[in-house]
Amino acid sequence: MWHADEIFGADDVSLHKFTDAAGVLRMKEREPMRKILERFEARFPQLFVAIYLGAFEDLQSLHQFGFWMLNRAAYVDVDLERPNENGILIVVDVSAKNAGITFGYALLPYLDEDSTFSALSAGHPSFLQGNYLEAIGTVVQKIEGRLIKGWKKVKKDPESILAEGGQNPKKVGELLQRIREGNQPGGMEHSGEEEARR
């Protein structure tokens, strides 16, 4: 993390979950994009998707940037019930023509490099045409499908599926204690960082 902080900065950054820094989306495409994100949040009340469209001049690694952004970004329009560890960040470098996905700890049991690459591949034709709205809509839809599959698996065997992602089921007593302490339910150990998002 410190390496990424050295490159991009160690301070938290305040962002909207949809950021078109490259300015590639037309005004009329912003509303459909917002609906894509809202629909996702309605289906997955613990999760959120953030989009960052940038035009980087000399970005060495989109992976590294996504990793850094999801750890440092404070999304002002995301509920407290959805911490960054439950987030999925889609970063598109419209200059270098790269797109990448980074996801939080809570999603480790359900997503991996292959599944996210597969989702990006589904949007590849639209990315090629510069139709970013359609491309991101396709990618999000594919991610939804993957998450639903993961949800079905974890329902049957929570412990082993969570363990595959390096996670453990949170104990109820501990959860209550955390709620009493003022932390959000459903989150992970790192709820203290939420304040940084603000």
Binding site: F103, L108, D112, F117, S121, G165
Partner: peptide, 20 residues
């Protein structure tokens, strides 16, 4: 609900996704 150990000193995410 789940909890895990942070990786790479990263508070929220160390998940390595795909890049295309």
């Amino acid at each position: 609900d789940a909890e895990g150990t942070p990786l790479l000193d990263a508070p929220y995410a160390a998940g390595v996704g795909g890049v295309i």
